[in-house]
C-alpha cells in the first residue's frame, strides 16, 4: 500500500497535484464526483488577468495526468483509518487503501436565489457569473438579450453577508466582475456597463491594471453601493435601485441584464468528509488547516492534506501553487513511513 495516494476532487487543484505526484514517481488515484474533470474552471470561459482560455488549462492538465487513475462519477462512501493509512469505499463498489489522501474538493457557488431581492429565478434577465461564463462559451442562453443597452454587475452576492451566513470575502469575484464587464464591452461596445460594489479587493498581480483598463479603455462605471432591490418593467427590462455611497445619492437604473457575482461557499461534501475522517472545520465552514500562515495544506489528521478551495476561497494561481506544495508535502510524508 505504501505509495498509494488518493486525491479526492478532480478540479484544477486535484489535477495539478496529480501531475506533480506523477513527476515524483507516484501513480495517484483521482476520485471525481462529477462526470468530467476540471471543476468550476472547466465551465469558465477565460481566466483573469491574462484572459487565457480556461478550457485550454483544463485540457493541458488532462493530458498531463495520463499516469493517474481517474475515476469520474465516483464518490467516497466511507473512509476508515488504518494503522498505516486509510481505507476508502467508493460508490463504484471498489475499496482502495491509501497511505496518503489529498482533499481537493473545491467550492460551491452561492445559490443566488437566496438573495431574493435580486430576483434570480424570478426575473428573466437576472443571471449569475456562472451563467454568463456559460453564455460566453456557448452563446446559448435566452436570458441574455441580443443587443443589451445596459448591463449591471452586482458584487458580493452571498459574500461578506451575515444574512447569507457567509461573512467571508470570496476573493475572486471583484476580478471576475471586471473581467466579465470587459468581455461584455468587447461584445457590445455601445452598452453601458455598471459594477455595483462594496469594496474592490484587487490584491493580485496585475489586478489593479485590470481595474484601470476597465475604466479607462472600456468605460465601465464603478458605483460604490449595494443594490437594494430589483423589479421588472412592462417591457421586461429590469429596474434596479441602489445607493451611490460616494456621492450620497440613491439611484435607479434600467438594465437589460443583471449579473450576480455569486460568492464562494464550502462544498457540501466537506461536511461528509470531515465527519468520515475526523477533520476539523473552521468557523467559515471550510476545512481547517492546522496553521493558516505556514501550513495551510496540512490537516489535523496524519496523512491527509489539503489543496485549493476546500480550505477557503482561492484564485487559480493560489490553487495551483497549493497543489504543487501539497504534492511535495505528501512525498515528504511518505518518505517518513
Amino acid at each position: 500500500m505504501k505509495g498509494n495516494i488518493v486525491i479526492i476532487g478532480g478540479g484544477i487543484a486535484g489535477m495539478e497535484a496529480a501531475k506533480s505526484l506523477i513527476s515524483l514517481g507516484y501513480s495517484p488515484i483521482v476520485v471525481e464526483s462529477s462526470t468530467k474533470l476540471g471543476g468550476h474552471v472547466a465551465s469558465w470561459y477565460k481566466l483573469f488577468p491574462d484572459m487565457s482560455s480556461a478550457k485550454n488549462l483544463v485540457s493541458r492538465l488532462e493530458s498531463e495526468i495520463k499516469g493517474a487513475t481517474v475515476l469520474c462519477g465516483t464518490k467516497v462512501i466511507s473512509l476508515n483509518r488504518l494503522a498505516d493509512g486509510y481505507s476508502l469505499k467508493l460508490s463504484n463498489g471498489s475499496v482502495v487503501n491509501a497511505s496518503a489522501l489529498l482533499i481537493a474538493t473545491g467550492f460551491t457557488l452561492f445559490d443566488a436565489k437566496k438573495k431574493e431581492e435580486y430576483g434570480y429565478g424570478v426575473y428573466d434577465r437576472v443571471i449569475t457569473n456562472s451563467d454568463l461564463e456559460a453564455w460566453f462559451s456557448e452563446k446559448k442562453d435566452a436570458r441574455v438579450p441580443d443587443e443589451p443597452e445596459s448591463v449591471g454587475f452586482v458584487h458580493c452576492v452571498g459574500s461578506r453577508d451575515l444574512k447569507a451566513c457567509n461573512a467571508q470575502c470570496s476573493k475572486v469575484c471583484c476580478a471576475t466582475a471586471i473581467k466579465q464587464a470587459i468581455e461584455i464591452k468587447e461584445r457590445f461596445p455601445y452598452a453601458k456597463v455598471y459594477c455595483f460594489y462594496m469594496d474592490l479587493r484587487l490584491f493580485g498581480k496585475k489586478y489593479e491594471d485590470f481595474y484601470i483598463n476597465a475604466q479607462r479603455d472600456y468605460g465601465v462605471q464603478f458605483i460604490r453601493g449595494r443594490v437594494s432591490e430589483v423589479g421588472e418593467t412592462l417591457d421586461g427590462r429590469l429596474q434596479i435601485k441602489a445607493e451611490d455611497t460616494l456621492s450620497g445619492k440613491p439611484l435607479k437604473v434600467q438594465l437589460d441584464l443583471l449579473v450576480l457575482m455569486s460568492g464562494i461557499v464550502r462544498n457540501q461534501s466537506i461536511g461528509e468528509l470531515s465527519a468520515m475522517a475526523g477533520l476539523e472545520t473552521d468557523s467559515d465552514g471550510f476545512l481547517r488547516s492546522i496553521d493558516n500562515e505556514y501550513a495551510v495544506i496540512e490537516s489535523n489528521r496524519p496523512g491527509i492534506f489539503y489543496a485549493g478551495a476546500c480550505t477557503g476561497p482561492k484564485t487559480v494561481p493560489e490553487t495551483v501553487a497549493e497543489a504543487r506544495s501539497a504534492a511535495l508535502a505528501i512525498h515528504s510524508y511518505l518518505e517518513t513511513l
Partner: peptide, 14 residues
C-alpha cells in the same frame, strides 16, 4: 401575472 417574470420562481419563494 403581468410581465415576463418566471411565475414558478415566485411560487418557490412563496
Amino acid at each position: 401575472m403581468l410581465c415576463t417574470m418566471i411565475y414558478e420562481g415566485k411560487q418557490r419563494i412563496w
